[in-house]
Amino acid sequence: MHIAEGFLPPAHAVAWGVASAPFVVHGVRSLTREVREHPESTLLLGASGAFTFVLSALKLPSVTGSCSHPTGTGLGAILFRPPIMAVLGTITLLFQALLLAHGGLTTLGANVFSMAIVGPWAGYAVYTLLRRSNAPLMVAVFSGAFVADLSTYCVTSVQLALAFPDPGSGFLGALGKFGSIFAVTQVPLAVSEGLLTVLVMRLLVQSSKGELTRLGVLLAKKQSRTETETEAVAR
């Protein structure tokens, strides 16, 4: 999903940068608030960022005969909500743009928009919907991570189709072209990402119950029962 350096016309590059900036600024604020109010969450924040680092470095072969990589943004979005993931994703993209010549500074806005904003929000929305309708935690986690991954690549396809419409068939023709490169390749990788996110969430459930309860991923069963008990007593 990395649009290469200089591969978006200047007007598009600026527009995506302007669209992304408020999300990242808002994310930085949420992140500093989270760290100030809950210093103990710094470690898990680091782990969420690390997950994105690993997954976006893994280029995996796919059914279309080309390689692509997962994004790893679903986990952080589910744990810390999308604004914070916008920052973690931007850091990852900046690292790759500066050191790996993967993505770029002029296309950073567009890449941040797809991987660090739309992906996390879409994944978080699906996760929240499923949780509200009482789906099991791991089903919601898998779906959230899957959607975060796949939607990122769909956005990239739209971004490129907007910038380079097909001379004959226009925007839709180009969308089909870029979509077949990105979105189709991504389907099995999104499944992999979903499974890996479930794996990490399972490990977290074993190791960090308290943290997950505070973040609202696990429900505080005991606490709510004692709360209702004290309420009953008060009455």
Binding site: I3, F7, K59, S66, L160, F164, F178, Q186
Partner: peptide, 12 residues
């Protein structure tokens, strides 16, 4: 098994 990113550049 080239990268999808590079394929997109070719498509452009």
């Amino acid at each position: 098994f080239t990268g999808a990113d590079a394929e997109a550049e070719t498509a452009i």
